[in-house]
Simulated scan of single mutants.
Amino acid sequence: MSLTQPQVEQAAELFLQAYRSGQQIDALPDALCPQSKADAYAIQAIVSGELCSTGIRTWKVGAPNLDTEPYAAPIFESVVSASPTIIPAEKLHMIGMEVELCYRFNTDLPTRAKAYSVEEVAAAIEGVYVAIEVVDTRIKQWQTCAELWKLADNQINAALIIGSGVQDWRGLDPAKLAGELVVNGEVLVRGEGAHSVGDPMHLVHWTVNHLAGRTGGFRKGDVVTTGSWTGMVFVEPGAEVVGRFEGVGEARVSFPV
């Protein structure tokens, strides 16, 4: 059974209070736990509408494998920045790092009756860029709570740093690409051909059609980031982080104390 609209609104208010206060939610009421992705997306929509009045221009998507339906979550424009950037460590409860590839669109892909083909989506992509996703959460018990709570919490996103990239991206071979996470000058993780679904374009294509039915689709300049090649690695305050893909580019962020 899905949540009622009042329950969705109450769950969204928990997250809004957490964002506004900077304090994590101590306890998640069982009665408000999302029962489906639709519930989680409804909570996302209310929170996004309150905190991002200009609309969502950046999305994250992920899936553990090709056999599992992907998920999508908004990233607020206030936490999207160009590389290099600085995020004070004191603003975060934890500092999780993921090295990703993100795709920027050069044309609108609005809602329509017919689903977009893979080729139509590919033709609408302006370029591929290296991104670092910063992971943090409004939920204190994020490691043990129901997965749908994390989806409602924008899949525990805190920020996205977009670095350099390439426009001639079609020749990139996902099986040979290697994402590297470099912390304080040391390569901590190198994930070659390590994306969970092989080719991230599978997720980009899904996201376009998913959002065409849910939000009205994509606009020129919108971005979708497609999940980690390095897993999630936690770093300490003061860390200097680089995410890079040879032949694509790099992104940089530091977390001064």
Rank of each mutant, 00 (worst) to 15 (best):
E236W: 03
A18K: 03
A178F: 06
L66H: 00
G185Y: 12
V79E: 12
W229D: 02
P29D: 00
H205G: 00
S36V: 04
C102I: 04
V182M: 13
Q141D: 15
V134Y: 07
A131T: 04
A45E: 14
F76V: 08
A31K: 04
A42P: 01
H93F: 04
A251C: 08
P237L: 06
S196Q: 12
S78F: 01
D136I: 12
I86T: 15
G179L: 11
V134C: 13
E98Y: 09
P174L: 01
E50A: 15
S81Y: 03
E147F: 11
V253P: 00
Y71A: 07
E240W: 02
A12Q: 02
H202Y: 11
I139H: 02
D168I: 01
Q35M: 08
F218C: 07
A27H: 10
L177Q: 15
N184T: 05
G62R: 05
G171M: 01
S164H: 10
L3C: 09
P110F: 04
G231E: 03
G49S: 02
L148T: 13
R170N: 06
M97W: 01
A194P: 01
Y103A: 08
Y71D: 11
G55F: 02
M1F: 05
L101P: 12
E13L: 14
S36Y: 10
W169N: 05
L181D: 06
Q35T: 14
F255E: 01
I139E: 03
Y71G: 07
P88W: 03
E69G: 00
A73E: 14
W59I: 07
H195N: 02
K91F: 00
Q44E: 12
E250Y: 11
V121G: 06
D136L: 11
G198P: 09
V187S: 14
T111R: 10
E120T: 03
S2V: 06
P70G: 01
P110R: 10
K91C: 05
L148Y: 12
V248F: 07
Q24D: 00
F76P: 00
R138W: 03
N209R: 07
W149Y: 09
H210D: 10
